[in-house]
């Protein structure tokens, strides 16, 4: 968090916690999909899986209004500069979810001496949560968003329930 938002001059712990709680529960993702993972991302936003339950269903068409970038798909070398520019245009605090194997490591398109893709979103932007799968199911993406909430609030919303189930 601190590395991304910068150290505040005055640190109000309770206020920060409240703000982080608000941020975690209203993650606005940027509307952009690079490949087939975006289909699952759309499914996650639609009625059956309903990202709005977690406050993350408000897909924004502008990077200026978003605080979460879901890198959903293969990053070609041609696309990489555009992604970096979108990331730079997002206001802090901001987070990244690398969705799917392509965004994590290049996935099936990576091989030695390949010339077309960037093998991993973390080579060009800082990634917070990795969601593996090819593509991950919408539940997987939702799990990733809940993990990100935990990372932001250092508490998360479901920890209690998980601990009870264990």
């Amino acid at each position: 968090m601190e590395t991304k938002t910068g150290q505040p001059l005055i640190h109000l712990g309770v206020l920060e916690e409240a703000l982080n709680l608000a941020r975690a529960n209203s993650l606005w993702p940027l509307t952009f999909g690079l490949a087939c993972c975006a289909i699952e991302m759309m499914a996650a936003g639609a009625s059956r899986f309903d990202l709005d339950r977690f406050g993350a269903g408000v897909f924004r068409p502008s990077p200026r209004q978003s605080d979460l970038m879901i890198v959903a798909g293969t990053i070609s070398k041609k696309m990489a500069p555009a992604i970096v520019r979108l990331w730079d245009q997002m206001p802090a605090p901001k987070w990244v979810i690398a969705m799917g194997n392509c965004a994590i490591s290049g996935g099936p398109f990576y091989y030695e001496n390949q010339y077309a893709i960037v093998p991993g979103a973390d080579l060009i932007i800082p990634v917070d949560v990795y969601v593996p799968g090819c593509p991950p199911r919408p539940e997987g993406l939702i799990e990733g968003i809940l993990m990100l909430e935990e990372k932001i609030t250092k508490r998360g919303r479901l920890r209690k329930f998980r601990d009870v189930n264990r």
Partner: peptide, 27 residues
Amino acid sequence: LLLPEDAEIHPLRKEFAGEEAKAEAPK
């Protein structure tokens, strides 16, 4: 059209082996 505009490779030529692409490693 498909590769970045500053690329220096023509990958579907016979003499292209892939080593040329290494020079253009991701940033």
